[in-house]
């Protein structure tokens, strides 16, 4: 886990949540800006997962390894699930659905960082 990456992920996630809220406020469906931001978020999350996997293989052991792995896998899937579900919503609420997924990602990466830094012995 890298703290700068966690910060970057949080910033992009908050931007995505804001874009989602904006499209809901303007009574519009999600557009290209949402797609590009979601793609960027996903890219950063995959990079984070790769960094974490390399460190795990290298011998880093978070105390709550099972929880850490469950979170790591879930957080990578969240933007994809959020986007797929938002795309099938034909109203202005699509942006908020995507925003919920983005905010969940922002919370989860900080929780992941917590779990990462507590190691056994």
């Amino acid at each position: 886990m890298s703290t700068p990456l966690v910060v970057a992920i949080s910033v992009v996630a908050v931007v995505l949540a804001a874009l989602g809220a904006l499209s809901t406020a303007l009574r519009r469906r999600i557009g290209t800006a949402h797609l590009v931001t979601t793609a960027l978020l996903e890219l950063l999350l995959v990079a984070q997962a790769v960094v974490a996997t390399v460190a795990l293989v290298g011998g880093h052991r978070p105390a709550e390894l099972a929880t850490f792995l469950a979170y790591l896998v879930s957080v990578v899937l969240l933007p994809v699930a959020g986007l797929l579900w938002a795309r099938t919503e034909p109203t202005r609420w699509a942006g908020t659905v995507l925003g919920v997924a983005a905010l969940a990602v922002a919370v989860m990466v900080w929780r992941l960082l917590d779990l990462w830094e507590v190691t056994r012995g």
């Binding site: 929880t67 699930a81 919920v100």
Partner: peptide, 22 residues
């Protein structure tokens, strides 16, 4: 599951995931 209801389902899904994993 339409409109605002979809937002509610999204939040519930996140909580089902978080509580379930934990």
């Amino acid at each position: 599951a339409q409109g605002p209801g979809r937002v509610l389902v999204a939040v519930y899904a996140v909580f089902a995931l978080a509580a379930g994993a934990r």
